[in-house]
């Protein structure tokens, strides 16, 4: 299914190894892997409902390092909503989000109305360095939403995406396709479902 103009684009940022890919893969495929394969840039698509219609959520999973600034800027300018991930086991990873937040502000101008979610991942891990309060404070400072998640135990992963979509005020979006579907819509969805399996 080629890209459409009404695609909703979410971009996931964060330092390398905090679990960005794990969160996305848990959400899209329901899987989790222990091994670490660095990402450069991957995209995924998921069918969601938007203004009672079917539309596609396009998720861009990015690299943690700053090797490709051009790629980073491009995905920010194309993105509608952003997920900023750190690992609760590393204070450093929270620090590294700050310059990214600044670039988003710089490129998007006004961040009001742009859904941004700060995420503390790996909350299953006992080696905590960042408390939940610290995360919340940071989110207040940025006036964005906040959640702690675990891709490993599948804690708050679906909620993360659901909440993010609800922050979008210009459209009404939901992960559930609860609209009354016409036959053709159902068929379209089925087709799209197939495509994502591919």
């Amino acid at each position: 299914m080629p890209e459409q103009s009404n695609d909703y684009r979410v971009v996931v940022f964060g330092a390398g190894g905090v679990g960005k890919s794990s969160l996305v893969l848990r959400f899209v495929r329901g899987t989790f892997r222990e091994c670490y394969i660095p990402t450069i840039e991957d995209t995924y698509r998921q069918v969601i409902s938007c203004n009672k219609n079917v539309c596609t959520l396009q998720i861009t999973d990015t690299t943690g390092s700053h090797q490709f600034p051009a790629m980073q800027r491009l995905s920010i300018s194309k993105g509608h909503a952003f997920i900023l991930v750190y690992s609760i086991t590393s204070r450093q990873s929270l620090e590294e989000l700050k310059p990214i937040y600044d670039i988003i502000r710089e490129i998007k101008g006004d961040v009001d109305g742009i859904p941004i979610m700060l995420v503390g991942n790996k909350c299953d891990d006992p080696n905590r360095e960042v408390s939940i309060q610290e995360g919340m404070e940071q989110s207040k400072f940025w006036s964005c939403a906040f959640l702690e998640t675990s891709a490993k135990t599948n804690y708050n992963v679906k909620e993360l995406f659901q909440d993010l979509l609800q922050l979008e005020k210009r459209r009404t979006m939901s992960l559930h396709l609860e609209t009354k579907k016409t036959k053709s819509q159902k068929r379209r969805e089925k087709l799209k479902g197939k495509c994502t399996v591919m």
Binding site: M1, P2, E3, T39, I40, E41, D42, T43, R45, M198
Partner: peptide
């Protein structure tokens, strides 16, 4: 070399 490999639905993965 770094390049993108696209699927039929135009999602991609970037390879190195």
């Amino acid at each position: 070399t770094i390049f993108k490999v696209y699927c039929a639905d135009h999602t991609y993965t970037t390879l190195r």
